[in-house]
Amino acid sequence: MEDTEPVRLTAWAHGRVQGVGFRWWVRSRALELGLVGSAANLPDGRVEVVAEGPRAACERLLELLRGPDTPGRVSAVVERWSPARGGLDGFVEQ
């Protein structure tokens, strides 16, 4: 698969990721990478990130989610890759 082929990354960030500016931070990084999608708080305390765009940009976002510069404290990130579905516009916090 080409690095430029569009894909969908769904990632679940575990840890202290709600109420610390995490979704805003994810949105900023995603927009810098040219991705579309969303970051949403889940009732169990995780944040779900859905991002679509070139595979290389999605992989970079995943690296950033697992990196040391995130707000709060990320204890784990679980990922799922799938084909891009389209229909997303911009990157929103939910």
Score class of each variant (00 low, 15 high):
1 M>R: 08
42 L>W: 00
19 G>F: 13
8 R>F: 07
67 G>Q: 10
79 E>K: 14
3 D>S: 03
27 R>M: 12
22 F>G: 08
45 G>K: 05
87 G>N: 05
26 V>D: 04
76 A>I: 03
82 S>A: 15
5 E>S: 02
59 E>I: 04
67 G>V: 11
18 Q>C: 07
3 D>R: 13
39 A>L: 12
87 G>T: 07
77 V>H: 12
51 A>W: 03
24 W>Q: 07
16 R>K: 06
73 R>S: 10
70 T>F: 04
63 E>H: 11
66 R>V: 01
44 D>Y: 03
80 R>P: 02
34 G>H: 09
27 R>L: 06
52 E>F: 11
30 A>K: 04
84 A>H: 12
43 P>D: 15
18 Q>T: 01
90 G>L: 10
13 A>Q: 08
80 R>I: 02
68 P>C: 00
21 G>M: 07
83 P>V: 14
4 T>C: 02
51 A>C: 09
36 V>G: 00
28 S>D: 15
68 P>S: 11
13 A>E: 13
50 V>C: 13
55 R>C: 09
2 E>F: 01
19 G>Q: 11
45 G>P: 09
79 E>F: 05
15 G>V: 09
61 L>S: 10
16 R>E: 14
77 V>E: 13
42 L>I: 00
53 G>F: 00
66 R>D: 13
38 S>E: 15
25 W>G: 09
86 G>F: 13
76 A>R: 15
43 P>W: 03
91 F>E: 05
1 M>T: 08
26 V>P: 06
29 R>Q: 15
21 G>C: 09
37 G>V: 07
4 T>F: 12
76 A>E: 15
77 V>A: 08
35 L>Y: 05
49 V>F: 04
56 A>T: 06
68 P>K: 05
53 G>V: 03
80 R>W: 05
71 P>S: 05
37 G>A: 03
1 M>N: 03
17 V>W: 08
7 V>D: 12
62 L>C: 06
29 R>W: 12
64 L>M: 13
72 G>Q: 11
43 P>K: 08
59 E>F: 01
66 R>I: 05
10 T>N: 12
70 T>I: 02
59 E>Y: 01
3 D>F: 06
80 R>E: 15
39 A>M: 13
29 R>D: 10
75 S>C: 00
72 G>E: 14
75 S>M: 03
11 A>S: 10
36 V>P: 00
76 A>D: 15
21 G>H: 11
40 A>P: 00
62 L>G: 07
11 A>Q: 10
73 R>Q: 13
93 E>C: 02
86 G>R: 10
52 E>I: 11
7 V>K: 09
82 S>G: 15
7 V>E: 14
49 V>K: 04
20 V>F: 11
48 E>T: 04
61 L>Q: 03
51 A>L: 02
28 S>E: 15
5 E>A: 12
94 Q>Y: 03
49 V>Y: 04
20 V>R: 07
64 L>C: 04
81 W>G: 00
75 S>W: 01
